[in-house]
Design a protein around this nucleic acid. Structure first.
Lengths: 146, 146
DNA sequence: GCGGCTACCTTGTGACGCATGGAACCGGGT
DNA sequence: ACCCGGTTCCATGCGTCACAAGGTAGCCGC
C-alpha cells in the first residue's frame, strides 16, 4: 500500500531536500530510502528528476567525482521553489483531511486542530427490505442489467 | 498534483468512514468530496468499492429507498478493520516522514514530535570541473552514450 | 411524459512508483 | 592483466488507481 501513498509526495520531497543545497541523484536515493523509507529504488528517482528538469523546477551541473563517474547535481530554481510552496499548502490540507477521517490527529495545537465530526445522521430515505449479501453483486428487486 | 496524493489513502478513508456505521456509495461521495476534498467524482469510488468487496474488506446489503433506486450499504468486515489498523500505522510513518522532509511538522504534542534533521554533510567525493547546464542533458567529459 | 434528483455502474486515459537491466568510471585483489 | 564490487547515471515495461465521461434506472413534481 505504501507505494501508492508515496505518489505525488515523493516529487516534492525531492524538491524539499534541494532547498538547502544541491544534491545528486544517488545521494537523494540514499537520503530518502535509508532515512525515511519514502523511496525504494533508483529506478524511481531518475525518471522523476528528468521530469523536474524538463519542467524547469531544477537545474543541473555536472561535477566530477574521484569515487566513480561524474555526478549530476540538482539545484532548485525559482519555479521549483514556488511549486514547492504551493505543494506544502496542498499537503497540509490533504494531511489534515486524512487525519480527521482516520482519527489520527496528533495534537490539537493552538491554531490547528479539529475534533472529529463522526456520528453521521446522513438521512434522506427510509429503509425497506433487506437483502444481505456477501458475494459479487446480486441485484435487488427489478433486475437492472447494465 | 492532488489526484496523485490521494492515491492509496482514499481507499482507507472509505474504510474509516465505515467504522461507525454502514454507508452507501453516494453518501460516501458526498462525505468525502464536500467535506474534505478527498474525492472528486463517483467514477472514483465505485471501482474502489468493488475492489474492497472483492478483497473481503467490506460486506454489502441492499436496502430500498423511497427517494430513488435501492442503495447498496457497505459495512466493515473483520479483515477490513484490521487492514485499516495496519494502514493507520503506515500512514503515521509516511505522514511523519513527509512532514519532516518538508518541514511541516505542525504541533509537537506530548508523545509525538521531532525536530528537523537538515544540514546535510553527504561527503565522499571531491569536486572537479564544473559544467553548468540547464538544457536536456549534455554529457560531461568522456561521452557516455547509452 | 419530461426533466431533475438519486443511485448505481462501466470503460478508457493518464500519471507515476517500481523492478529490471545496462553502461561507464573507479579502486583493490590475485 | 583481469575480474569484481561499489558508485553513478540512465531507459523500458508493468501495474495500480484516481479521474472523466457516459450509461441505466428508480422516484418525484409539473
Amino acid at each position: 500500500m505504501l507505494p501508492q501513498l508515496r505518489r505525488g509526495a515523493l516529487e516534492y520531497c525531492v524538491l524539499a531536500l534541494l532547498r538547502g543545497q544541491p544534491r545528486y541523484g544517488f545521494d537523494l536515493v540514499r537520503e530518502l530510502s535509508e532515512a525515511d523509507g519514502l523511496l525504494t529504488s533508483e529506478g524511481t528517482i531518475y525518471p522523476l528528476l528528468s521530469r523536474l528538469r524538463k519542467d524547469g523546477l531544477v537545474t543541473t551541473t555536472w561535477q566530477e567525482s574521484d569515487a566513480g563517474p561524474p555526478r549530476r547535481y540538482y539545484a532548485l530554481t525559482a519555479d521549483g521553489r514556488s511549486a514547492l510552496e504551493r505543494f506544502v499548502v496542498d499537503w497540509r490540507r490533504f494531511r489534515d483531511g486524512v487525519d480527521r477521517v482516520l482519527g489520527t490527529t496528533p495534537a490539537p495545537g493552538p491554531g490547528r486542530g479539529r475534533v472529529a465530526t463522526a456520528a453521521g445522521g446522513t438521512d434522506g430515505g427510509q429503509v425497506g427490505t433487506v437483502t444481505s449479501s456477501t458475494g459479487t453483486g446480486e441485484q435487488p428487486g427489478p433486475g437492472r442489467s447494465a
